[in-house]
Design a protein around this nucleic acid. Structure first.
Lengths: 139, 139
DNA sequence: TATAATACGAAAATGATTTTCAATTTCAAA
DNA sequence: TTTGAAATTGAAAATCATTTTCGTATTATA
């Protein structure tokens, strides 16, 4: 039903190495070419899709296109992390915090809405970027 | 600096009429054509961009492209709503709830992250769709 | 009016993502 | 091993939402 290929392994390995920041499909293909394991862009997209379905990576859609990042909590089955993404610098924090889980339960109990942590991205400003913020909007 | 045009008014009026559900740019243009106020697609996009910048509407990026919806709380300046979007049926609830504002404050105080409610969409399943959920994933 | 700034829209361009399809690879069975 | 059906690959083409171009039309003001 599904073969194991070297392209598959190469993509996953590259995502593990780039785990600090989300990466675009094109940049990932570029990295792979550099590292001597070129993988066609179509295949990169196919593997990313698979990995996302399998819950191993997060797909982060932004104004600038989609980025992918391996989920640091992918091993922990019971409890999922929520994503905080800085809209200025693009940095993403994978947060496993009681308050977020409490919110999850509140929304389910009181508003009959079950958040999917994997597809929810809290967007805003990280500390560093909030500090730099330009009050005149001239960014 | 900015002229008032009938296309502008037509787009806003149409968004007000379709306020129940998010609508795509193409569907909006279609609606406008139907209602006898045809507006070019490029202009529709330009107006949507303006309205979003002005904080009058929400832009909701999804796997199926972008949707736009007028913000029912746009008049209330002090407090912004958060969006809950059902990933199954696409329905969006604009929620002004104390727990969410508490979360906002918790993230700011403890995690040094300031959420931008306008760009944050909590994605998951609404009650109706959660009921229909298919445990075998054959959706 | 005149005119300068702004907005319009059809058509072309863009660009990320997906699809096509012939060639290649995988893996289990012979 | 070989074999062959099923799955995967990748270059190129297709898709498709969104943006840009650019000549024309509209707006507000003098």
């Amino acid at each position: 039903m599904s073969y194991s290929t070297k392209q598959q392994q190469a993509v996953l390995q590259c995502l593990e190495q780039c785990s600090e920041e989300p990466i675009s499909a094109a940049a990932l293909a570029e990295q792979l070419r550099h590292s001597g394991n070129p993988v066609g862009l179509a295949t990169v997209y196919r593997q990313l899709e698979k990995l996302e379905q399998a819950g191993q990576i997060h797909k982060i859609r932004t104004e600038e296109g989609a980025f992918y990042q391996i989920c640091p909590h992918r091993a922990a089955q019971g409890r999922e992390c929520f994503l905080l993404r800085c809209e200025r610098c693009g940095h993403v924090v994978h947060l496993d915090c009681g308050h977020l889980h409490a919110l999850y339960e509140h929304l389910e109990a009181e508003h009959h809405f079950r958040i999917d942590p994997r597809r929810t991205i809290l967007t805003g400003l990280c500390q560093a970027c909030a500090g730099k913020e330009d009050p005149h909007g001239t960014q």
